[in-house]
Design a protein around this nucleic acid. Structure first.
Lengths: 237, 237
DNA sequence: CGGATCTTTGACTCGTCTCAATGCGCGTGG
DNA sequence: CCACGCGCATTGAGACGAGTCAAAGATCCG
């Protein structure tokens, strides 16, 4: 509704960080085809990138920063469907009326493609098609994992699961976790309240499993213990 | 582990129910290509269809009956990922090590394809490829819906959600719900305990929202009320 | 009919939510 | 530069919903 409109800016050319991004691990050579096809746009922290239906028009790819996709309900609750980091696509698997909006958690730079553009590319290039299918399958696997988490885990297990996931994401191997999002974001993502999240952070700190520098910087002190917490009852028999 | 092996039977030819099935609504004409390619197998109620890794070898399609895909954890808990009905594919989006097993809820008849078979077909026929991608996207949408359910809804809302889903599934429009699965199955699917499921059934009955003939036959008496319960806080603001 | 299996119901416990107050960090303006 | 206020995070007390444990009822099938 009252969406903060993009701070336009198709100025910045695809250099520097962009090139660097494309060479991040994985089958990104495939995606080099997308170079120069899109338009770069910037959004300030907490601004809305798209609301609901707009998704069907465009597809974005994160260049820099973090975003959240979410939905707000009548009673004011918010469900966060996921966070997207550098390299991730936004709106890939979503059709028209999904009701998912996207906001910038930090200042972000995105590349914008038209859906048509992507679809044509996918049809002409089987490698791209394959990549997109893989993204969908991965997304499905991710969802399955979260379904188990939400269905079976308690607050402590959920947060451990979350921390480990972000740790491997942002600092390969190193037990330092950067959490650009706030406590409320984490709560809405894990299906908890902000108070519970906060309490569990404190509890994990008292147990010496983690150390909290500030709101956004966590160090994992006892990774194995955290791991077994996160896996909890999740390990298949 | 102690999986009940299939009652073999590749005897029954693809007639009757099969033909009928293929003409059920939707883009099933596309799937006619799959006719005669697969092998028909039968499984008795509660027998295991495949366990974990086997998924990667074959892909099944339900001809008749209902199945559940699930995972068992160390502590004995079971998470049900979903139920599959006539026409559904089993193991489509799953790669190798998903840890999902599949069991027959009722006696079932399945058509079995090799994954290779499907992949070749998909490569040669873009319509099939498109169909599979659509199945993946739909699966993702389904998962998103369940994530909201598990993250935000209470027991009553979850059961209402479940009943309406099954109602539309098995008896288009008519408010009669057939539940081939037991209470424990429903509980493991909704992330509740069997006792809670049972209590909520009773509560909905006392509220005159539903009527319970027997364990497996439910009539929806007040669909709008059930609907608003199911949507609860789900309605987007 | 009898036993196995599944469901329902009840009493109690425990975890998370709710409501409310306090604390902390940071930017703004005096 | 400090004081203030604002937004966010933390902490506490109490309520409530779902889980647990236990027992009684249904239902199915031999």
């Amino acid at each position: 509704m009252n969406a903060t409109r993009p701070t336009s800016a198709r100025s910045i050319p695809a250099d520097g960080a962009f090139e660097c991004e494309l060479s991040r691990g994985g089958p990104d050579s495939i995606l080099r085809v997308l170079d120069g096809k899109g338009t770069i746009v910037h959004f300030p922290r907490s601004s809305m990138i798209f609301a609901e239906g707009e998704t069907s028009q465009n597809i974005y790819r994160v260049l820099e920063g973090v975003t959240r996709s979410f939905r707000i309900f009548m009673d004011g609750r918010r469900h966060i469907a996921g966070f997207s980091f550098t390299g991730d696509f936004l709106g890939l698997g979503l059709q028209d009326e999904h009701g998912l909006s996207e906001e910038a958690v930090t200042d972000v730079a995105l590349i914008l493609y038209s859906r048509k553009q992507i679809e044509l590319l996918a049809e002409s290039d089987p490698a791209i098609h394959k990549y997109i299918v893989k993204a969908l399958v991965d997304g499905l696997a991710e969802s399955q994992s979260r379904l188990v988490m939400l269905g079976q885990q308690n607050a402590e297990e959920r947060l451990a699961w979350f921390l480990l996931r972000k740790a491997s994401r942002l600092a390969e191997g190193r037990p330092l976790v950067d959490l650009p999002m706030g406590r409320q974001d984490i709560a809405d993502y894990l299906g908890l309240t902000i108070e519970t999240v906060s309490r569990v952070f404190t509890r994990l700190k008292r147990k010496r499993l983690i150390d909290i520098f500030n709101f956004h910087q966590i160090r994992i002190l006892n990774e194995p213990a955290l791991q077994s917490l996160a896996e909890g009852s999740r390990q298949a028999a």
